[in-house]
C-alpha cells in the first residue's frame, strides 16, 4: 500500500469503528433504555404497556402481600401522590421493607399492574436512592402547591 492510501485506510478504519458502534448502539439504546418514572409520572405519562421502564418510590405501608403460590409478592410503590401496584415473582432483596425506597425494573401490564423483573432495594441507613429521594421531594412540593384539604 502507498503511504497515503495506508493512512487513509487506517483513518477510514477508525471512522468505520465509530460508525459501527454508533449503528449498533443507537437502535439497541432505543429498545433497551429504560426511563425512570415515579408513580405520579407514570400516572401522568402515556406509557405503552410492555415497554421496559424503571419505577422508583417507596414501598407503601401495609401493602406487601405474599400470594398463596408462595413465590409471588405484590405491593404498591408510592411517591405519596400516586401509587402503582407491583407484582414480583421471586425472593425480594434483603433491604426490601415497607416504607423503604425501592427501584423496580420491569414493564407495565395492560391492566395497570407493574410486572417487576428485578427489584433493587438500596437503603444504607443514612442514604436513600437519589431517584427516590428526588421523586418524593418533588411529589411533596406538588402536594404543598395544592390547596390544603
Amino acid at each position: 500500500m502507498k503511504p497515503k492510501s495506508q493512512r487513509l485506510f487506517l483513518i477510514g478504519a477508525a471512522v468505520a469503528a465509530l460508525i459501527i458502534s454508533a449503528l449498533l448502539a443507537m437502535p439497541a439504546l432505543r429498545e433497551g433504555a429504560a426511563y425512570f418514572y415515579a408513580p405520579a409520572d407514570l400516572a401522568a405519562a402515556d406509557v405503552e404497556p410492555g415497554q421496559p421502564l424503571r419505577l422508583g418510590g417507596l414501598v407503601e405501608e401495609g401493602s406487601v402481600m405474599r400470594l398463596p403460590d408462595g413465590v409471588t409478592t405484590t405491593f404498591r410503590v408510592t411517591d405519596r401522590l400516586e401509587s402503582v401496584p407491583v407484582r414480583y415473582s421471586g425472593i425480594v432483596p434483603d433491604l426490601f421493607r415497607e416504607g423503604q425506597g425501592v427501584i423496580a425494573d420491569g414493564r407495565l401490564q395492560a391492566d395497570g399492574t407493574f410486572a417487576a423483573e428485578t427489584l433493587l432495594a438500596k437503603h444504607d441507613e443514612n442514604y436513600m436512592p437519589p431517584e427516590v429521594a428526588e421523586a418524593v421531594a418533588r411529589a411533596e412540593a406538588e402536594a404543598k402547591a395544592r390547596p390544603a384539604n
Binding site: E61, R80, E98, Q100, Y127, A137, E140
Partner: peptide, 14 residues
C-alpha cells in the same frame, strides 16, 4: 422501629 417518621417528615437520612 420501622422508620415511618422518616417518610412522614420527608427526611432523606438520619
Amino acid at each position: 422501629p420501622r422508620g415511618r417518621m422518616q417518610i412522614e417528615f420527608g427526611a432523606t437520612g438520619v
